[in-house]
Nucleic acid binder design. Structure first.
Lengths: 273, 273
DNA sequence: GTGCTCGTTTCGCAGAGCGAAACGACTTGC
DNA sequence: GCAAGTCGTTTCGCTCTGCGAAACGAGCAC
């Protein structure tokens, strides 16, 4: 099928449906969901049945709308605390209070930069990146910093995919992107002015585990009025210091279960083209 | 296929795999998982790929074992707090401290009594019901109390299914079970001495929401030495009082999103036999 | 070095899951 | 108060997905 056709179709669909409810806030009906995931009502309904049966979703008996079920909630309790979130909490707050800007924490995943936490800035207008969103590798500051420090094999794979344009300012040139990654490694930060959404920008720096693998990023996000394409010295210094702090506390482990830092990404065969 | 063949096969499989990792504690390898879910390594591997790609699982780069990923953890943060767990927390602690027995909170789901929380008793030997387990309707005190107060249609459906024997003392007679449900409604509690596992028993009472729907149960769990088939007056009174307390605080709502209590179970057509 | 075990990959067949469309229960508007 | 619309649910037949079996290749222990 498409670029990387790996993965099981119907499971993907089920997860799409689950997320379309989870990462949206309110519950939803079959028709709405079908529109969001671009499927027929019939298919969506069958998936919903399965997810309800398993307790990941629940259907309100009165309104017939679907909401998250308690199995979903249990998943979190059953897994050890995520080192990254814990380590980042304090330093993130400090950074937010210092700069007054919205601060966002992301983690490396095979599909992009997963938003793990956000602290909103002091501006009356809140610009929030939704928890659970996956920012693309090529059009977000968070994604680019992660890609820049990722294993070469993964970079190759991403560069081979079609680079979707999210806004009129999204850079879609492969060569251009490759050069930018080089520059990012050199400067230690990434920015992406208006590449995701016109009027917005973010400055991201990498977070590294004890093995010097880039496992996530910390970023300030905001209007281009406050977050310019080239960051001011003070903000950049504060960002870098915050990232360093977080990286350092990722080193100390509580032993036992697998070190979160070591949970890298296995790179599958990059394709044969 | 089987009794109720509804639901999508591969999604069920994916969830089985997810849960076999989530509700087990430690990470696991492909071979172990394949054994647990009774599938070939090949199939399991493809499912794991999909789940890793979506961030619900992560593979340790060094050991190649699979663990829960951060998407799983995010699911919880994105859903409103579960009223039942919040309401039960205080009263449960009080009950545990009063009786010194292990106390367990479960919720009604289409497949049985889902264990939401457990507080261990004072005995040096811990008997814990694993979080996320789904106790069957016919062989557990928690399941039976829920079934006893469930809508008749659901009772019919459950009684029509084959009643699996978990231990030599599991009651598998339909008529017998039906009579017991009647008795349970009358007395207001259920017990299930050695029906799940020899040597163990539980006493469960129902928790009701503002619409008088039985949404969950609270139970004391332990060896048959301490938890006898017919509970002593004191324990039973304490249990009932605890359940009453929890039920009452389920009444007050914070408005907005769907009332947890109203999220009932839609009963599908019970079959045509 | 050799024999195990583990994770990953390939291949062809069967049945699972998809879309289209009908159905039935509520709401809305006139 | 009837008709038109909307929503969730169900049915049906065809296609393509996802399954099992078996080969592959990488670690590890002895």
């Amino acid at each position: 099928m498409s670029e990387d056709g790996n993965g099981i179709q119907s499971v993907k669909t089920a997860l799409d449906i689950l997320e379309s409810i989870a990462f949206y806030g309110e519950g939803a009906g079959v028709t709405q969901i079908a529109e969001r995931v671009r499927l027929t009502k019939g298919s969506v309904h069958r998936h919903l049945q399965t997810l309800v049966d398993r307790g990941y979703l629940a259907q309100d008996a009165a309104t017939t709308r679907y909401y998250l079920g308690s199995k979903s909630r249990l998943l979190s309790q059953l897994s050890p605390e995520l080192d990254l979130v814990r380590a980042a909490d304090g330093p993130m707050r400090k950074l937010r209070d210092l700069l007054g800007q919205t601060v966002s924490l992301t983690e490396m995943t095979p599909r992009g930069a997963l938003v793990l936490a956000t602290l909103v800035g002091s501006s009356p207008i809140e610009i929030v990146v939704r928890l659970g969103s996956e920012l693309s590798f090529h059009s977000s500051a968070q994604g680019k910093i992660l890609l820049a420090f990722a294993p070469p094999a993964l970079q190759e794979r991403e560069l081979r995919k079609p680079l979707r344009a999210f806004s009129s300012k999204t850079k879609t040139g492969r060569r251009e992107l490759k050069a930018e990654l080089e520059k990012i490694r050199e400067l230690g930060y990434a920015s992406a002015a208006e590449e995701m959404l016109l009027g917005l920008n973010a400055i991201a720096v990498g977070i590294f585990d004890e093995a010097q693998v880039c496992v996530g990023s910390i970023a300030i996000v905001g209007s281009i009025q406050y977050v310019s394409a080239v960051p001011d010295r003070r903000s950049l210094a504060a960002l870098k210091e915050t990232a360093r702090e977080i990286s350092k506390s990722l080193g100390r482990h509580n032993g036992a279960s697998a070190p979160a830092g070591a949970r890298g990404l296995t790179i599958r065969r990059p394709g044969k083209a």
